[in-house]
Amino acid sequence: MAVTALARSPRAQLRAARKRDPRQRRSVVLTIVMALFVLYSVVPLLWLIINATKSQPDLYSTFGLWFGKDFTLFQNIVDTLTYRDGIFVKWFGNTLLYVVVGAGGATLLATVAGYGLAKFTFPGKRAVFAVILGAIAVPGTALAVPTFLMFSQVGLTNTPWAIILPSLISPFGLYLIWTYTIDAVPTELLEAARMDGSGEFRTFFTISLRLLAPGVVTVLLFAIVATWNNYFLPLIMLSDPTWYPLTVGLSQWSAQATGVAAQPIYNLVITGSLITIIPIVAVFLLLQRYWQSGLAAGSVKQ
């Protein structure tokens, strides 16, 4: 349609077409459509931020998407952090512990194993593949009840281990590192390192790991999200509030608002929710460049 100069070579035609090509022009209509998508995605978060600044009475009496009569954000934060002797701070610390050990461990195990699967041939490799691929389809929550029963028999329930141990396995992470390694780490490089007398693990930690960095960051981020957002497993495993992560704690606070001896603390639930999502959103924004390239590489080979 844009091609008018038939006499020119295809390349020149293309270049000429590109200049007037509608694909290259910014579209106002498309931008408005996308703005609607953004609105849908962001309005609930705006609601959360705005309502975290309100006092409990203002929550009931003022319009949801605008500020209340009093600006009580700082008071709400103080109240959230000090309610019941600072149990929220304890939950925050627990969540950090589960994330650092659980997601960190999951990333380490998946990276080392994914690399091993990609770069070595060994007896039983096919069986390993089959078992792991099969396990991806097993719904995580189907395992929760039997895992709880197993843990209760060995006395692991109500301890941090009940949350950390099941978090250590990320079949998806292993799959991503495996596909990523095939492209990112040339076999020739490994052979050269072997010729120089470098041990396999030394080669892995000094050479390969650096090449795998974007893939590792991607796996780490998604493991962090999974652990930070984990709700079902801790809900089952923990009965002692001192070991709760933020998710279970917040849902408990929210449930406290209904029932017989109801004591609504909605302002604390809302402010606590805001405090819960800030670190994870910050991590995503700061590491954008890494995980977006890692995700792109992972999608090449589906």
Binding site: M34, F37, V38, S41, V42, P44, L45, W47, L48, N51, V225, W228, N229, Y231, L246, T247, V248, L250, S251, S254, Y266, V269, I270, S273, T276, I277, I280, V281, F284
Partner: peptide, 19 residues
């Protein structure tokens, strides 16, 4: 901006929408 909700824990998402 459109990706952002993914980082929000399911519990918090349910609480916000519940409100």
């Amino acid at each position: 901006a459109i990706f952002l909700p993914y980082a929000v824990p399911g519990v918090v998402a349910a609480l916000i929408w519940g409100f």
